[in-house]
Design a protein around this nucleic acid. Structure first.
Length: 230
DNA sequence: GCCTGATCATTG
DNA sequence: CAATGATCAGGC
């Protein structure tokens, strides 16, 4: 077996076929093998390197690095998501989608939302995530190129509209992770002291904890399972 | 602080 | 013991 080229030599994929071929070539390798081959130092665990796996796979696949609010493969309209799974392929964590806009939302619709944009086309790469497997021994799984079907998009749209209505109406601080069936709103910040502008209950400006949209496991689980059962 | 990449760890 | 709320790292 031959490992794919290291990240520094990887240019962005020109189409989905090439991207999927690159991702498929990683399936079966351990994170230790991929780290060594890329000349990266594997952290002991993910406590202080929570996004490490995502960055590693970005480099192998030729994703445009950086912190731009764009898709990872903007040229071909694809977002990359690594997702930790258990031995049965079920997700171990929710999936962050994007930061939630808490101000300037007049006229924003589902059709023009960042959530819809980010989820329009996603390359899911499951990675063994059980904490009792040492990071170096965790294996990369089979990738899945996905777009929401009509039913999935409807459920996302309904949750997004419910959450955005609350945000616009000054109820952001009343929203908990229990709102929404498949999409939830949770803190997304450096810590609980971080603040960003939002709208208060009387329509006045307030400062509150930054929030992000996350996909619940009840959404990503069946999505992954459907693929691997077919 | 904002946005990217997410997982951690306390709690119900 | 799953899920919610909190947190970690890095670039700009």
């Amino acid at each position: 077996m031959t490992l794919p080229l290291v990240s520094t030599l990887v240019t962005p994929p020109v189409n989905e076929v090439e991207l999927l071929a690159r991702a498929s070539a990683l399936a079966g390798y351990t994170l230790g093998e991929l780290a060594t081959h890329a000349g990266l130092v594997l952290p002991a665990n993910l406590k202080r390197d929570k996004g490490w796996i995502g960055v590693l796979l970005e480099r192998y696949l030729g994703a445009s690095a950086g912190s731009k609010p764009e898709q990872d493969f903007a040229d071909i309209g694809v977002e990359l998501k690594t997702i930790p799974v258990d031995s049965a392929g079920r997700p171990l964590e929710t999936t962050f989608v994007c930061v939630a806009p808490l101000t300037g939302n007049s006229g924003v619709t589902w059709e023009t939302s960042h959530v819809r944009y980010k989820l329009a086309r996603v390359l899911w790469i499951p990675v063994e995530g059980s904490r009792d497997i040492p990071l170096a021994a965790r294996r990369v799984g089979t990738p899945l190129l996905w777009s929401p079907d009509a039913q999935e998009e409807l459920r996302l749209k309904q949750d997004w509209e419910e959450l955005m209505d609350l945000i616009v109406l000054g109820q952001v601080e009343k929203i908990t992770a229990r709102h929404g069936e498949v999409l939830q709103l949770r803190p997304k910040a450096a810590n609980s002291r971080a603040l960003t502008a939002a709208i208060g209950e009387f329509g006045q400006p307030i400062m509150t904890l930054p929030r992000g949209f996350y996909l619940k496991k009840t959404f990503t689980g069946p999505l992954l399972a459907r693929h691997f059962l077919i």
